[in-house]
């Protein structure tokens, strides 16, 4: 069983699937409440496209130490305020039709096992939701997926100390992973299983 801190910065509810992945525990809090959390209690901290990156930057030292000690930070969104060393602001790709927004799977990895380019590229035949550019990865990061003709990195993961930094450059990752297996939620389970097992 993994334990995750799920950060919100909207007044809505978190995704329903958190209640379905009963093998893991998700503590859902408004982002600013994370200041009172003991990061070390968590296998992963999840923050998304609505996150206040200025606030995350104010906690950069704590987050960096947490990752180094074995934690995982899983971020979806465009980097606008680099809140950890090695993060670089978002660079959009030029949008010139569907293929300019096609998502390519790059390095085989447990996090993306079983997913296809079409799973990630399309939502009801429309491309662009998953990623429209990149948060350039630091040297040594493993690129999991890319977008467009130039295969700009969209998802990358980097080992930092004993922990992980996982960056997804686009709308929140979860809706696409859910749609790829809406009944079994297999792809979602794989993500949380990975971080629960990888952060001993």
């Amino acid at each position: 069983m993994g334990r995750f801190l799920w950060l919100m910065n909207t007044p809505g509810a978190p995704p329903d699937f958190l209640h379905q992945l009963t093998e893991h525990r998700f503590d859902v809090v408004q982002q600013y409440e994370m200041e009172r959390a003991e990061f070390g209690d968590y296998d992963g901290i999840i923050t998304g496209m609505h996150s206040d990156q200025r606030h995350l930057a104010s906690l950069g030292d704590r987050l960096g130490a947490y990752i180094d000690a074995g934690g995982a930070l899983i971020f979806s969104g465009h980097v606008s305020h680099p809140f950890l060393p090695g993060l670089t602001p978002f660079r959009p790709v030029e949008q010139k039709g569907l293929e300019s927004l096609r998502i390519h799977l790059e390095t085989p990895h447990p996090l993306t096992e079983g997913l296809t380019s079409d799973h990630l590229t399309f939502q009801r035949t429309v491309a662009g939701f998953y990623g429209r550019g990149g948060n350039p990865p630091p040297p040594g990061a493993t690129v999991l997926s890319s977008v467009g003709f130039d295969r700009v990195p969209v998802d990358w993961i980097e080992r930092r100390g004993k922990g992980w930094l996982y960056v997804h450059c686009g709308n929140d990752l979860w809706a696409h992973y859910r749609r790829a297996d809406p009944e079994g939620l297999g792809h979602l389970r794989r993500v949380f299983d990975f971080f629960a097992g990888a952060t001993v």
Partner: peptide, 8 residues
């Protein structure tokens, strides 16, 4: 609000 879409 500190979000990327506000920043852009």
């Amino acid at each position: 609000g500190g979000t990327y879409f506000h920043h852009h």
